[in-house]
C-alpha cells in the first residue's frame, strides 16, 4: 500500500511537471549566441538638470554605443562613401565642422546651415536650428537622405550593412539578433551621439572647486551672467528656446528658422539658442556661420542687432552695452568653456 501511494505521488508530480512545462511559452529561438550586453548609464554631471529620458525605449549598452560609433564614422552611410556623419561633425571641433560656415555634402554641394557641435544632446528637447527634429533617434534620417549631405536612401544603407562582415555580429551583441533594420540603426546612433557629454572644461573645474578663474575670466563670467545668461543658460549654456537675436535675414537662403516648422509668423527669424560650450572651437558662428570670429559675434550684440524686427527678442531691443575691455574679458571667459577632455577622448574617437 505504501509503495502504491508513493507511486501515485510520483506520477502526479511527473504529470503536473509535463503540463506546467506545456503551459510555458516556448523560448523564441535566437541566433544561438547568448545576449549578454553590458548596460551603461548616461553620465549626468553633478548639479545638472535631469535630462528627459531619451533612452526609455533604447536601453543603453556598451555594445550599442560601440555600434553607434562605428556607424557615425562609416562612409557607407552616404551614397559615395565620402560623407560619414564625422565628415561634418569632427571631434576636434567639438563635433562641428571646423572652420566652415557651410559643410560639404555629396557631389560638391553645401549644407544650408552651419553644422552645430554635438554634445549634451540628451538635454536638448528639439534638434536642428529650427527645432524641426523632435527626437534624437530620428535625426539621422535627415542627413542620410538629404541630397546636399549624404544623399543616400535608408534602404541602401541597410543593404550595405547587411552585406558587411562585422555589422550583423555587432547588431547581435547590441540588440540580441543579427537583424538589421532602420530602427536599430537609428537607436545605435542615438546611443553614441546622446552620450557625448561635455562637462570638463575649465569652467566646470572652477565650479567643482578644482581650479580658479583668472581676474579677466572672472570679470567675463560676471558680465556673462549679467548680459547673456538668460538665453545661454548655465550649465548647458542654452535654455533650449527659439529666439530672434536680431540678425538680418540671409537673403540668399531666406531662412526664417522656427517659422518653417510652426507656421507661425511670430516665430519668424527665431533660431534655437545654441550652447556656448566649446564655442571657441565651433566657429564660424550663427545658423548660417556669418561671423567668423567670436569677437564679431559679440560685436553683433553691441552694435549689429537690427532693432526694428517685430520678432526681435525683447531682451535685445536696446542692444547690449559692452565696452572693449568687457568684450575681451567675455572672450577670456568663453575660452574657459572649451572641453579638451571631450574633444580628445578616445572613447568618442574613430
Amino acid at each position: 500500500m505504501k509503495l502504491r501511494i508513493i507511486l501515485f505521488f510520483l506520477i502526479t508530480i511527473l504529470c503536473s511537471a509535463i503540463f506546467i512545462s506545456a503551459c510555458k511559452n516556448n523560448d523564441v529561438p535566437g541566433d544561438n549566441v547568448p545576449y549578454n550586453p553590458t548596460y551603461i548609464n548616461l553620465e549626468v554631471p553633478a548639479g545638472w538638470p535631469t535630462p528627459p529620458d531619451i533612452y526609455v525605449n533604447n536601453k543603453l549598452t556598451e555594445e550599442g554605443f560601440q555600434l553607434g560609433k562605428k556607424l557615425f564614422y562609416d562612409g557607407r552611410l552616404s551614397k559615395d562613401g565620402n560623407f560619414p556623419c564625422a565628415s561634418c561633425h569632427q571631434q576636434f571641433a567639438a563635433f562641428a565642422t571646423y572652420d566652415h560656415d557651410f559643410s560639404h555634402g555629396f557631389n560638391n554641394t553645401f549644407t544650408t546651415r552651419n553644422a552645430p557641435g554635438l554634445f549634451n544632446l540628451a538635454w536638448m528637447t528639439k534638434l536642428h536650428w529650427d527645432g524641426g527634429i523632435n527626437h534624437i533617434e530620428v535625426q539621422p534620417l535627415a542627413p542620410i537622405t538629404a541630397q546636399n549631405e549624404m544623399a543616400e536612401t535608408v534602404e541602401n544603407v541597410l543593404n550595405k550593412l547587411k552585406a558587411d562582415g562585422d555589422y550583423p555580429r555587432m547588431f547581435q551583441s547590441a540588440f540580441g539578433t543579427t537583424e538589421i533594420n532602420s530602427q536599430k540603426l537609428l537607436k545605435a546612433l542615438a546611443q553614441f551621439m546622446g552620450t557625448i557629454v561635455s562637462s570638463n572644461a575649465k569652467y566646470d573645474k572652477v565650479k567643482r572647486g578644482e581650479a580658479s578663474f583668472t581676474a579677466p575670466e572672472q570679470n567675463g563670467y560676471n558680465l556673462f551672467k549679467a548680459k547673456c545668461e538668460t538665453c545661454h543658460k548655465e550649465p548647458l549654456f542654452t535654455d533650449n528656446s527659439f529666439r530672434n537675436n536680431g540678425m538680418a535675414v540671409n537673403t540668399f537662403l531666406n531662412d526664417y528658422g522656427r517659422m518653417r516648422i510652426s507656421n507661425d509668423k511670430n516665430d519668424s527669424l527665431k533660431f534655437k539658442v545654441p550652447s556656448l560650450r566649446n564655442v571657441i572651437l565651433t566657429f564660424p558662428y550663427m545658423h548660417d556661420g556669418r561671423f567668423y570670429s567670436i569677437g564679431q559675434a559679440i560685436d553683433h550684440y553691441r552694435t549689429g542687432i537690427i532693432t526694428t524686427q517685430p520678432t526681435l527678442d525683447p531682451l535685445l531691443i536696446n542692444r547690449i552695452a559692452i565696452t572693449n575691455t568687457e568684450k575681451n574679458d567675455l572672450i577670456y571667459f568663453l575660452q574657459t568653456l572649451t572641453d579638451t577632455t571631450m574633444t580628445r577622448s578616445p572613447r568618442f574617437a574613430q
Partner: peptide
Amino acid sequence: VSGAQTGALDPL
C-alpha cells in the same frame, strides 16, 4: 514624438 519606430511605422 517617441523616436525610431518599426513595422508599418518604419521610415522606409
